[in-house]
């Protein structure tokens, strides 16, 4: 997994609540058996005027010019500013894969759906929770200033605005540690193999039916 320590980037505002993972990456693209290549289809139904197909060259497709990612001022963006309950719905990890593949490193929103939030950390993508008031303030800042950028520091757990204003955010210690060091958590869990074996030995005595085979 790619490390995340600091990031400085252009902010794109997506001003709608309850953005679901079907919207982030529609189902027809979930047929891929790879982890990469989802970027051109990120927000496919909002971004293009036609219906996208898997493995299609998107360069000639008609664009919805009103959609934020199609506007000149947000080109090169890497921080997505969003509203509450971002990433609700399906558990598809293709959603963070698509955000990452497009070039996003950070999402900022007042709240997230849990599975999406969890999936972000597994992919080096930082989902930051700020209060509704702070998110409102950022939306206003982005709208007022072309090329609006934010500085994100995971060590300090801070978001810094162009004007030097600082917002602090919370992040779980374990997730922060994994993200800062780009750690593979399967490797970390396997360090506890003895504990897992001991659990299984005890549990299979108490509840042997949980360990029978499906053959």
């Amino acid at each position: 997994m790619q490390k995340f320590e600091q990031h400085n980037g252009i902010v794109a505002p997506l001003d709608r609540a309850n953005v679901d993972t079907d919207m982030i990456i529609p189902k027809q693209f979930l047929k891929s058996i790879k982890r990469s290549g989802f970027g051109p289809n990120l927000f496919d139904e909002l971004r293009y005027l036609d219906e996208g197909q898997p493995d299609q060259d998107c360069s000639g497709r008609p664009l919805n010019t009103e959609f934020v990612l199609n506007q000149d001022r947000y080109q090169g963006c890497s921080i997505l500013l969003a509203r509450e309950n971002f990433g609700c719905g399906s558990s598809r990890e293709h959603a963070p894969w698509a955000l990452d593949d497009f070039g996003f490193r950070v999402v900022i929103a007042p709240s997230y759906a849990e599975i999406f939030y969890n999936n972000c950390f597994k992919n080096g993508l930082l989902p930051i929770v700020l209060s509704e008031t702070e998110v409102d303030e950022l939306f206003a800042g982005v709208e007022a200033t072309e090329g609006y950028q934010l500085q994100i520091d995971l060590h300090k757990q801070q978001v810094v605005t162009p004007g030097g204003k600082t917002f602090s955010f919370e992040v779980d210690e374990f997730r922060k540690h994994c993200l800062l060091n780009g750690l593979d958590d399967i490797g970390l869990t396997l360090q506890h193999a003895d504990a897992i074996n001991a659990y299984e030995a005890k549990r299979s005595q108490e509840a042997p039916w949980l360990f029978s085979s499906f053959k």
Binding site: R35, S91, R92, E93, P96, I115, N118, N119, K122, N123, D172, F174, D185, I186, T189, L190, H192, I196, E200
Partner: peptide, 20 residues
Amino acid sequence: HGIGTSEVEHVLATQCLIAK
């Protein structure tokens, strides 16, 4: 409950989930 694909791999490899 539902999990993402990285967690599917984690459960395949360890039969455990890192949870809170």
